[in-house]
């Protein structure tokens, strides 16, 4: 079976579009497009909101509410929205399916970004915030120059988790007749073409792994070493005494 899957993945015919079937590159592109649109919208909503809630401590119930959304079964919501929205679109357009899909994807991506951004800002040491304001930073300067950079590790982990969920769920979008890598899975299932179905699964898994690797790399360069703790190993912390001459006041001993 594994051999059949590899054969399916290797077949050049599956890497080209035909009149009836779209090839792997096209479906991959569709999958990535869905993912990017959803992530961009979710980030634009959740990041500023999370920063605002974390900075001001107001509207915290929104974080709880967003997390409660996670109890919803995503397929169910996807089917429901499709059934509601698609009849309003006619003719040669996918929008009736794209819109519900993107809504579901955004709903999925918002909670991890929002709650991690909020938690990240909350975790910034009170002393650092106090010092920042006390030195004359304005509210937005504190947010931009201290709170945001310090919460980047948590924001990144939220965004990475959102990305994985969106890639996973975009696969299910093919179930409501859209393109994307999930098309191979659901077409394969319908045609009892298991190599195609499993091959689709392999492609989705690879896409998720690569996306996460890419984000991990960006995170490595975006997060200050002072926070991630990747210092050069040469620097050993010397004791305090070494840095300051011990001043003999009245208390030297005989």
């Amino acid at each position: 079976m594994i051999g059949d899957v590899l054969t399916w993945l290797n077949d050049p015919a599956h890497w080209r579009d035909t009149r009836v079937d779209k090839g792997i590159p096209t479906q991959l592109q569709t999958h990535i497009t869905f993912t990017l649109i959803a992530l961009a919208i979710a980030l634009a909503l959740a990041l500023p909101l999370g920063l605002f809630i974390g900075h001001t401590g107001r509207l915290t119930f929104l974080v709880t509410a967003a997390n409660a959304l996670r109890a919803l079964p995503t397929v169910g919501v996807l089917v429901l929205l499709t059934v509601i929205i698609s009849p309003h679109f006619h003719g040669r357009t996918d929008l009736g399916f794209v819109i519900p899909t993107e809504i579901v994807l955004v709903f999925l991506a918002v909670p991890p970004i929002l709650s991690n951004t909020y938690a990240g800002v909350q975790n910034v040491s009170a002393a650092a915030r106090d010092a920042a304001a006390g030195m004359g930073m304005t509210g937005t300067q504190v947010l931009r120059k201290v709170e945001l950079p310090c919460s980047l590790p948590l924001i990144f982990s939220g965004f990475r988790s959102a990305t994985l969920q969106v890639i996973a769920t975009a696969t299910v979008a093919s179930y409501v007749t859209l393109g994307g890598l999930g098309a191979f899975i659901y077409d394969g299932l319908q045609q009892q073409d298991f190599p195609q179905m499993i091959g689709g699964g392999v492609l989705v898994a690879l896409l998720a792994l690569l996306a996460d690797l890419l984000l991990a790399t960006i995170q490595r360069y975006a997060v200050s070493r002072g926070i991630s703790g990747r210092f050069s190993t040469k620097s050993v912390i010397p004791a305090d005494a070494a840095t300051a001459q011990v001043r003999t006041a009245e208390a030297s001993t005989v």
């Binding site: 002393a127 650092a128 010092a131 030195m135 004359g136």
Partner: peptide, 16 residues
Amino acid sequence: RRGIGYVIQHAGLFPH
């Protein structure tokens, strides 16, 4: 505040 030096208990250095 920019014209007043401010030192607090845990230093409050910016870790990044």
